[in-house]
């Protein structure tokens, strides 16, 4: 061993320090992971909402994962306005059909969180400004969404996010 310039002690040194290094890094994992959402927070990740009382043209604000969700019953005019837009001209090209459930195109369910910096856009509440495209308007930095909640104007990069959801029945939707 001594002949080829490698000492037994070098091996022990490298092995010991490596072992301690791996152990130290392994100990870091729980210390970092503990800050991620805990089991009780994750358990709140689905919510069921009764939509029977929402008539066409109305919207409600529900809460999912401690964030607002807009559930909107679109009028035939609003659907028509959304379908009339040439998708290729949009910043985040998506059709209304893609953003809703087949056969229930009038139910537009999106997060009430502006994709710019996270404010709650106006337009879901009674009497709130809906913006020039008749959908939502974010008062923080002036992002304007259309009747399919797609970004049309202002700094936001994306359409309002559509959360995973399914209709448990004709009057109940489950989000998450």
């Amino acid at each position: 061993m001594a002949g080829d310039g490698v000492r037994r002690r070098d091996f022990i040194n490298i092995a010991a320090v490596s072992f301690a290094g791996v152990g130290g890094l392994a100990a870091l994992y729980p210390l970092i992971s503990q800050m991620a959402p805990s089991a009780d927070v994750l358990a709140e990740s689905s919510t069921e909402i009764d939509i029977s009382a929402i008539s066409p043209g109305q919207a409600i604000k529900a809460v999912w994962r401690k964030q607002p969700v807009f559930i909107r019953n679109l009028t035939p005019e609003e659907i028509k306005a959304a379908d009339a837009v040439d998708v290729s001209t949009l910043r985040d090209p998506e059709t209304l059909e893609k953003r809703t459930t087949a056969g229930k195109t009038n139910w537009l369910i999106t997060m009430g969180v502006c994709t710019h910096l996270g404010c709650v856009p106006l337009g879901a509440g009674e009497g709130e400004v809906k913006g020039e495209f008749g959908g939502y308007f974010c008062p923080c930095h002036g992002s304007v969404y259309d009747t399919a909640a797609r970004i049309r104007k202002g700094p936001a990069p994306k359409n309002l996010e559509v959360p995973p959801h399914e209709f448990s029945s004709d009057t109940v939707v489950k989000i998450g």
């Binding site: 210390l31 503990q34 805990s38 089991a39």
Partner: peptide, 26 residues
């Protein structure tokens, strides 16, 4: 993760033990 309030302190420790990632170990 701990809450220093006599109403919830005990429960927050159980929360650490059951819900927080690696909370039992910490």
């Amino acid at each position: 993760h701990y809450a220093a309030n006599a109403g919830v302190a005990f429960d927050s420790v159980e929360h650490i033990m059951r819900d927080v990632n690696w909370g039992w170990m910490l």
